[in-house]
Design a protein around this nucleic acid. Structure first.
Lengths: 225, 225
DNA sequence: TGCACAATGTACGAAATGGTACGTTCAGTC
DNA sequence: GACTGAACGTACCATTTCGTACATTGTGCA
């Protein structure tokens, strides 16, 4: 991602340019991501983003028109990054049960490791998803997610280890809910119930429980004796 | 809650006062709840709250010192309201399985019917729960919630319908997660997956699935044939 | 009835904040 | 090397926004 640091790229070494628009843009976006995810759309300050950038406030408006557009780009970049990581997951060669298990654990861990993304989605929901609605990019990015899960599920039904009649979209909803909540509500939950939810051992426990829960929900009912 | 409407109370009818601090306070708090839950702490405007109140901005500062204190009171009032409704739930006379079922459905529906509360909790999490941490009131309010669930669970284990080894706190976490996510992420989820999640029939489906999921998680494993 | 204090209205101040005008420098092209 | 447009810096403006000073009215009580 930081390819414009003028070290190996022939194009870059030749040019030796002082102006580096790509990197300036990326830098602004990175700072904006931190600021927006930390303080929200209304809480984040353009001046503060400008300060933390190696560019100036002028540059923010030069590349991103206004605050809301910058926020939208931040949101899009975040979704893009997530879906890119998801794409690396290769479930086709795994048995359905293992595949589902892996998908759940991946989602759980991924969310836990990317609180910035989670917070941005929370913030976007506070805004009723009105920016997400403007972005065709995000809509298209997410199209495939359900298909992957749906494929695993259908294979599982075919092999007889998953019960029939479930909707992949609802299944994805369940997995998302548990993984998302783990990050989104960590602060209030931990404080109210005086529980070190973020501690590694508790995170491990939760990951196991979540995986267990999804599997128990999907697996075929075992016949009573 | 709206006891100061000067209709039946003898004290009120006698006095016929023009100054009505209690009701002004309550009015401010009600408006503030709407504004904060809609726009967040930084997004909400004191001037706008003042406009929508039948009192003036001066009164807001008179009763609530500053913006953050007003927000804190809003949060406390919201939690209080919720816990009050929860307290009405009487699970002791129900069989463990029925009790758990009812608890899950209640939580799910309650959250769905109180998006303002959910949004406030989301916002509070964006702020890392730092206001909730200041409030001894909220801490104390939530103490009993786990106990109720824990009681049902233990009864279920005793009767042999629930499996052993589960932590009531983690069980509560699961129920909360699913019920909370249903409201908190409705906008982004519905838009991304082009799903009318808020539609009554889908809400009913989700409620059933969530209940089903929790029960499947808690019930004893049925023996294989 | 008048006093003390709570409750309320009006107007204003100071700082923060989104956004812009205007000028300057850089880099590729003829 | 002059020209052009992209890339960038500085200073500034208009508005918003939290909060307050000050004056006024209502209310219970001696």
């Amino acid at each position: 991602m930081t390819a414009t640091s003028a070290t190996t790229s022939p194009k870059e070494t030749r040019r030796r340019r002082k102006n580096d628009p790509e990197s300036v843009r990326a830098d602004i976006l990175a700072v904006a991501t931190r600021e927006f995810s930390e303080k929200g759309l209304s809480g984040a300050r353009i001046d503060e983003i400008a300060e933390k950038t190696r560019a100036s406030k002028r540059m923010i408006y030069y590349y991103f028109s206004d605050k809301e557009t910058l926020y939208l780009h931040t949101l899009e970049a975040a979704y893009q990054k997530v879906r890119l990581q998801e794409a690396e997951l290769d479930l086709d060669h795994l048995a359905p049960l293992d595949a589902l298990c892996r998908l759940v654990r991946f989602t759980f861990c991924h969310h836990a490791k990317n609180p910035d993304f989670i917070r941005l989605v929370m913030i976007e929901n506070i805004h009723h998803g009105r920016f997400l609605a403007q972005s065709e990019l995000i809509q298209s990015l997410n199209a495939g997610v359900i298909d992957v899960l749906g494929d695993v599920y259908l294979r599982g039904v075919a092999t007889g280890c998953f019960r029939e009649g479930l909707d992949p979209r609802e299944l994805h909803w369940l997995i998302s809910a548990l993984s998302f909540f783990n990050v989104s509500n960590q602060h209030t939950f931990a404080r109210i119930f005086d529980w070190q939810q973020a501690a590694p051992e508790n995170q491990q426990k939760l990951e196991d429980h979540v995986t267990d829960m999804v599997l128990r929900y999907v697996r075929v009912d075992r016949v009573a004796p």
